[in-house]
Design a protein around this nucleic acid. Structure first.
Length: 275
DNA sequence: TCTGCTGTTAAACA
DNA sequence: GTGTTTAACAGCAG
């Protein structure tokens, strides 16, 4: 589910509810979510007493900035956060609960249990998995044309696969890659190393623009995504190709084709996107 | 009931 | 380095 715009929206809505709250107790109902410390019991032990000072984001990762630690959370396909009063019943598929000292709780719910959580001592998080190998966030200074050009020029993979690679740029997923390539008029099967400067610049600009627009719309809800307040996104109304199989292209009117690239469903207008 | 699909990613293997 | 398959899971459509 959540790609950069959805994580950004969750961050913004959640901040409103959990900033300056102090963790009293942590419950873990599915320990496999916890990747660091190795032992979920340890995870439960170190967090009480910590106050959430800020929430930040890098790529698709949500970072809860605590006093002494950083909690790094990845939602994978269907992870969701919500805030409740302690007395409210726990919903199905709730795997981790952070109870605060004020009678409220931050709950992590994940139908498919693919999400991950890592806790590191503050300052260590960037040199450890999962952030250590991550490329620049598209909204960061580090996502320069020179950097992007170099990275794409030296890989033989097709552009669709390269854009999904989080070590090149962090935050694009299947929806926004398809949208970006359509807007840039580049075919997803085009070899990255064969792209010219103009195409690479276009992909970079369209990626940033698409993500910015999606953030403004509160993200894209296809099946299950909701923000930290349980609200759906609206960007699905602005999609050009994702989920538009057999529907007329909004630019040329020819039907949108769906194919498989690198094992991922890929939507393309064969008229507008040239290989 | 069975099969294939899903917004993610890491690991194992050729 | 690159591509493919599998695996972590549950739900849903056909």
């Amino acid at each position: 589910m959540p790609e950069l715009p959805e994580v950004e929206t969750i961050k913004n809505t959640l901040k409103h509810y959990v900033i300056n709250k102090t963790i009293k107790e942590v419950s873990v109902y599915w320990p496999n979510i916890i990747k660091h410390p190795d032992d979920a019991e340890q995870f439960k032990l170190i967090l009480p007493g910590q106050t959430i000072r800020d929430i930040t984001r890098k790529g698709k990762f949500l970072l809860f900035q605590l006093d002494d630690y950083v909690l790094i959370s990845h939602l994978r396909m269907e992870g969701k956060y919500s805030v409740h009063k302690t007395i409210e019943p726990i919903k199905k598929h709730t795997h981790v609960v952070f109870a605060f000292t004020d009678g409220q709780e931050l709950r992590y719910n994940d139908v498919r249990k693919f999400g991950t959580m890592h806790v590191y001592t503050k300052g260590d998080e960037m040199s450890q998995k999962p952030l250590s190998q991550l490329g620049p966030d598209p909204f960061d200074e580090g996502f320069t044309f020179d950097y992007f050009y170099q990275k794409l020029k030296k890989t033989e993979r097709v552009i669709k696969t390269a854009l999904l690679d989080q070590t090149i740029v962090a935050g694009l997923g299947n929806i926004y890659v398809d949208e970006t390539l359509f807007r840039a008029n580049v075919h997803p099967l085009k070899r990255s190393s064969k792209l010219n400067k103009k195409e690479i610049r276009s992909i970079q600009c369209q990626a940033i623009e698409t993500l910015e627009e999606a953030v403004k719309q509160g993200g894209t809800t296809i099946r299950s995504y909701v923000n930290g307040q349980g609200e759906m996104g609206m960007f699905q109304q602005n999609l050009f190709v994702y989920g538009q199989e057999n529907k007329p292209c909004k630019k040329c009117g020819k039907p949108i084709t769906k194919m498989k690239i690198g094992g991922r469903g890929t939507h393309v207008c064969k008229t507008c996107q040239k290989n």
